[in-house]
């Protein structure tokens, strides 16, 4: 009986071992991905030499009581950064006009070879794709879906955007609802793949890229219009609230399981620090909110938010966003 058990158990164990090994290779977040990155990383876009944040920069970027509170909590905490599709929608609803000169050229895809640059530009191209779709620039949307596909493939995100997705998009280019559903689905596929394969840091970088692209488009499209009473200016300044969440997401992903700082997140923090300093000069105050139930089952959250900034400080935000976005697409 023992012998029979051995005969049957050995192949079973070997088969399981092979399956599990394949799984762990596929999951990507661990050493396999690191070595691939090392191979790709010669001359990559770390625009700072820092590999670890010093205390001063750490405290300046992350330090406040609210953040510490979250870290101390044992329960699961999610921080939700606006997705590329939501970012594009917010721009449009604030009165932005479409200008394809502002988009990151899809000829640049070959430039992006490191994990960080591919992740940033997956976010950037997805925001550009969403922006073009919302304004019914269908051929541009198609071209940018291909650029996003190229970035996703470079990041080994399998099946997020396949040829079937491109065909579906091509067949439905004139139906905006379907196009937006396709964009939403592909982004969900990418972000869920990364998060479920323990690559939350990469998922965070994708979101930061997409969010900065939205901010870049908004700051370019606002031009030299007066600040007061300009809804696009308000939308830009309100991003201080989203930036608080961006910082928390970066704090969540700064250290790996061994307590070592992730160099991609460190370099991103150094790139975003000037934006932190610029947003520090924006004052956002919100009155207490209350919820009022409407007749159509839609509640309204009633409150008043006031945003204050000096014109020179608003100009500084525009300059800083331009510099950050330029560094992302290089």
């Amino acid at each position: 009986m023992t012998r029979i058990l051995k005969i049957y158990t050995m192949p079973f164990l070997l088969a399981l071992f092979v399956i599990v090994s394949l799984n762990s290779c596929d999951s990507g977040g661990g050493s396999g991905d690191e070595s691939k990155d090392q191979a790709k990383s010669k001359g990559q876009d770390y625009d700072q030499n820092l590999t670890e944040l010093d205390t001063s920069l750490y405290n300046s970027f992350f330090g406040n009581d609210e953040l510490s509170e979250d870290i101390e909590q044992a329960k699961k905490i999610f921080h939700s950064i606006p997705s590329p599709l939501e970012t594009a929608m917010l721009l449009k609803s604030a009165g932005a006009e479409y200008d394809d000169v502002l988009l990151n050229s899809n000829d640049n895809v070959e430039r992006y070879t490191s994990t960080k640059s591919m992740a940033l530009n997956l976010g950037i191209y997805t925001t550009d794709l969403s922006f073009a779709s919302l304004f019914n620039y269908t051929q541009t949307a198609m071209d940018y879906m291909k650029a996003a596909k190229s970035m996703a493939e470079g990041l080994d995100i399998t099946d997020a955007i396949d040829n079937e997705t491109l065909e579906l998009l091509e067949e439905n280019l004139n139906q905006r609802d379907v196009v937006m559903d396709i964009i939403s689905e592909t982004f969900l596929n990418s972000s869920s793949y990364l998060k479920e394969n323990k690559r939350e840091d990469v998922a965070a970088i994708v979101l930061v890229g997409g969010w900065i692209e939205g901010l870049y488009l908004a700051t370019k499209l606002v031009g030299d219009e007066p600040i007061k009473g300009n809804s696009l200016v308000d939308r830009i300044l309100e991003q201080k609230l989203a930036f608080d969440i961006v910082r928390k997401v970066l704090a969540d992903n700064l250290e790996n399981e061994n307590g070592k700082q992730n160099p991609d997140i460190v370099s991103l923090v150094t790139q975003l620090q000037p934006l932190k300093e610029a947003f520090d000069k924006v004052k956002v105050t919100t009155t207490e909110a209350k919820s009022v139930q409407g007749a159509n089952q839609v509640s309204t959250i009633m409150s008043k938010t006031t945003v204050e900034v000096e014109p020179k400080d608003f100009e500084q935000i525009k300059v800083v966003v331009d510099q950050i976005r330029t560094s992302f697409i290089q």
């Binding site: 308000d234 309100e238 609230l241 608080d244 969440i245 919100t286 909110a289 919820s291 089952q297 839609v298 509640s299 309204t300 959250i301 009633m302 409150s303 008043k304 938010t305």
Partner: peptide, 9 residues
């Protein structure tokens, strides 16, 4: 379902 009178976290 809800709508926002002003932006907030």
């Amino acid at each position: 379902d809800f709508k926002m009178q002003s932006s907030q976290q």
